[in-house]
Design a protein around this nucleic acid. Structure first.
Length: 118
DNA sequence: CTTATGACGTGGT
DNA sequence: AACCACGCCATAA
């Protein structure tokens, strides 16, 4: 699979001493096409974080509220929304996915249909 | 230095 | 499909 990476950073890049892997992480995140979703684990692996799925989630949680990065396109390996239910962020994710034409039923996305990469 | 804690993943039952 | 037990890895206490 080939991925197109665009230069992006969430907020001030200077706040990070070592950015290599982390920067790649944001780039991969930014490269997820609208209308598609990927998993924390896949995102971590693509960014060279090995099995750092949990770490991926931690980093996503550190994004500033006004970020333009598509954090909402990340769900767990089962296709389920993984934020605490009924929280503002959870609602936000649901609405954003819906706005991109992604089908979400019972907090779950059909990865066969919307998964990225295939 | 240990333990606990997550926007997690995977394999077994 | 649902549950459970581990494995994973940075952070906090």
């Amino acid at each position: 699979m080939s991925i197109t990476l665009k230069p992006v950073m969430p907020g001030d890049a200077s706040q990070f001493a070592k950015v290599s892997v982390r920067e790649t992480f944001w780039q991969v995140l930014a490269s997820i096409p609208s209308g598609r979703v990927t998993s924390y684990g896949r995102l971590a692996r693509l960014a060279g974080m090995g099995r750092g799925a949990r770490l991926a989630g931690r980093w996503l949680g550190q994004l500033p509220e006004d970020t333009t990065l598509p954090w909402h396109r990340v769900v767990n390996s089962l296709g389920q929304l993984s934020l605490p239910p009924d929280t503002p962020a959870d609602i936000q994710q649901y609405e954003r996915l819906l706005a991109e034409g992604i089908i979400v039923t019972h907090r779950r996305v059909d990865m066969k249909r919307h998964g990225w990469p295939d």
